Simulated scan of single mutants.
Amino acid sequence: MDNTAWEQIFRRRGDSSSMFDRYWCLDKYDNINMSVMKARLQALDGHKTGLPFSRQTLVDYMQRIDRGLLRYDLCETNDLLRFAAARHITIHGYTTNNSKAVTVRRNHAALVNQLQRADDHATFPLTRLPPELRVRVYELYLSESRIMLKAPTQPPLARTCRMLREEVLPTFYFRTTFVVTLQMHTGDARSDGTLLRFDFDSIAFLETMSPQHLSRVRKLHFNIMQATSTRQQRGILAEVVVSLAGDADQRTSIKSTTLPRGLLWKKWVIAGTEKVITRMESRDGRAILKIGDVYAFRSALEVVLH
């Protein structure tokens, strides 16, 4: 997928901030109040977070936990000195031979600030690792993202250099479940005879993904929604997850609470998607996804809705 093409498409749409999945960004906690953050910190670290922290300080602490980093403010000064010595960090602003409480607090604060700054600027020689270890790092890195992504941007690790891009993207597309939204039109079918229509996000994502990347995708999550004039009024009618890597009896899972026909409808859906997968396997020897197959899945879902 060409990220420049993506940005141009969504810039023309005028609401790019809502179109991209910022799955790789740290949570900014914009909609979380301070009391909730303090309660979560207390539950996570076992210490009462009752100090008059500013909102930004609380957000910084929450983000450190999200990153799996140590909260140095909970450590004793002697422990912080050992951390700094082990990492060869020169601490500035530390005063020795003074037992006044204010000096102790300043020393502790100086240690905390400089150790946190060292964390923010820490580097790791990833490219020097053997390839099999690098792939394991990519798997762990990508496992931290959301399980299902809709029209996502590529992970930042894939944009650092050509070597990492060639190694990271296959893992990214293989491990991620991609969400495709289909809008169901009530009444008569559209002029082209179709009842289900890809929404803008899905069609832009699919049409701009390269065949090489699409062939790596192993799982598609189809959301069937009622087409309405506003997003807020839309409701999911059914969810159909197609797995191209699973066993024949587990390749299609369905969740539906509003569509009629119940178990019979589910049976038809499974039969239709299985036919598509069988055609894919007969064509390539295994289920290699192409753009036409996505449309074939759409048609298979459409048949049982008429």
Rank of each mutant, 00 (worst) to 15 (best):
L74R: 06
R298E: 01
V294C: 08
L129A: 09
P211D: 06
A287Q: 06
R55W: 03
I254C: 02
S16Y: 08
L70G: 00
D284T: 11
N97E: 03
I32G: 00
A300M: 05
D247F: 14
S282P: 00
T171D: 01
A158I: 08
A245V: 10
E207I: 01
Q183E: 14
C75Y: 12
E281N: 07
R87C: 02
R190S: 13
V276H: 05
S17N: 07
V242R: 03
Q250P: 00
Y173K: 08
S54A: 15
D249Y: 13
D2G: 11
L26H: 07
I147Q: 10
A158W: 09
E167P: 13
T186S: 14
D15R: 04
R218C: 06
R251N: 14
Q114E: 07
I203W: 05
L140W: 08
K100V: 03
R298Y: 04
D66S: 15
T257G: 11
L149Y: 07
N3M: 15
R13K: 12
H108D: 01
I224N: 07
L244V: 09
T252D: 06
P130M: 05
D2I: 09
M148V: 15
M209K: 00
I89L: 09
T273H: 10
A118K: 10
R128V: 08
T257F: 15
H213K: 07
G193H: 07
L157Y: 11
F124P: 01
L58K: 02
L206S: 04
K100Y: 09
N31H: 13
T160N: 01
A227P: 00
S229M: 09
I288M: 12
H108V: 00
Y23K: 02
K48F: 10
L80Y: 05
R67I: 12
S243V: 08
L264E: 07
V269Q: 02
G193F: 13
L195M: 12
Y173A: 03
T49H: 15
L115P: 13
F53H: 10
V102W: 13
D2A: 06
T176E: 02
